[in-house]
């Protein structure tokens, strides 16, 4: 699904990612953990194609394509979804309107017909239920006046609508209380499938109690310094990031 090789990224001349390797297979859920400033969000943003990041080396291939050569909207239509750490407010634009534009842009890209209003509404209602969201939510402006939890829920709702091949969840757990965390995790779990891969970017182990990953990677100094199964996350939680950073035996084993 996704293959990242020797990826080096600088921001304003400062190297953030330094020869990162990562491979995510179809249907797999990978967690990327690491201390603040280790480059987790940079990785998420580079995959999605945000401006301001200079790729100075390496490659990212998605379903066999050179992902880095595609504009952000092309990546999205090919099935790359980023759940934002800080979802943006767009005043005056109803949630449902953005969603419809987004869904139809992707459908058109795939050579499918645009959904008519009725079919679209049917789909929307089904997915709303998944995230336990009320219908009035659709008619509020995108993220405007949403609580932190609502914003994150909205991201996962959008993911459910867009049915991506690869979803990158950037600190989706931050700012959520335990009830909201469960709802969001259930929403993600319901979308796990053999042809959908997920990358969870997180600072804390907590999220991984609810979304159990197939692989856990620790990012430090711009590279993956340690990989393992879900137990690695527990180990990290117990010992802190200092443990991996100071351990001389750390090797990349993605």
């Amino acid at each position: 699904m996704l293959k990242i090789s020797k990826l080096t990224v600088t921001v304003d001349g400062k190297t953030i990612l330094n020869g990162l390797d990562l491979e995510v297979g179809p249907g797999e859920v990978h967690a990327i953990m690491g201390p603040n400033g280790s480059g987790k969000s940079t990785l998420a943003n580079v995959i999605a194609g945000r401006e301001g990041y200079q790729v100075t080396g390496g490659s990212v291939s998605f379903l066999g394509q050179d992902l880095l050569s595609l504009a952000p909207e092309k990546r999205a239509r090919e099935g790359v979804f980023l759940a934002f750490q800080y979802p943006v407010e767009i005043p005056g634009v109803a949630n449902v309107y953005l969603l419809k534009e987004a869904v139809n842009a992707t459908r058109q890209h795939r050579g499918e017909e645009k959904l008519d209003a009725m079919d679209f509404l049917k789909l929307v209602r089904e997915k709303l239920k998944l995230l336990q969201m009320k219908e009035e939510f659709l008619y509020r402006s995108v993220n405007e006046g949403f609580s932190g939890g609502e914003k994150k829920r909205n991201e996962i709702f959008q993911m459910a609508m867009l049915e991506p091949r690869l979803a990158v969840l950037d600190e989706t757990d931050s700012g959520l209380d335990i009830d909201a965390l469960k709802i969001v995790a259930d929403g993600v779990n319901a979308q796990r499938s053999a042809d959908r891969s997920v990358i969870l970017v997180t600072h804390y182990q907590r999220l991984l109690d609810y979304i159990v990953p197939d692989r856990v990677h620790v990012l430090a100094g711009g590279r993956i310094v340690r990989s393992g199964d879900k137990h690695l996350a527990l180990e990290l939680e117990a010992q802190g990031y200092g443990w991996v950073e100071s351990d001389p035996s750390t090797v990349s084993a993605a």
Binding site: A48, P72, L82, V88, I90, G92, A102
Partner: peptide, 28 residues
């Protein structure tokens, strides 16, 4: 915002459509 534009584009909208969407919202 570049942030608003990127958000819309990440959802699959072209840059042009994203701008149009944001501005129309502003003028609502």
């Amino acid at each position: 915002g570049e942030d608003q534009l990127f958000y819309c584009r990440q959802r699959g909208l072209s840059e042009e459509d994203a701008v149009s969407l944001i501005v129309n919202g502003f003028c609502k």
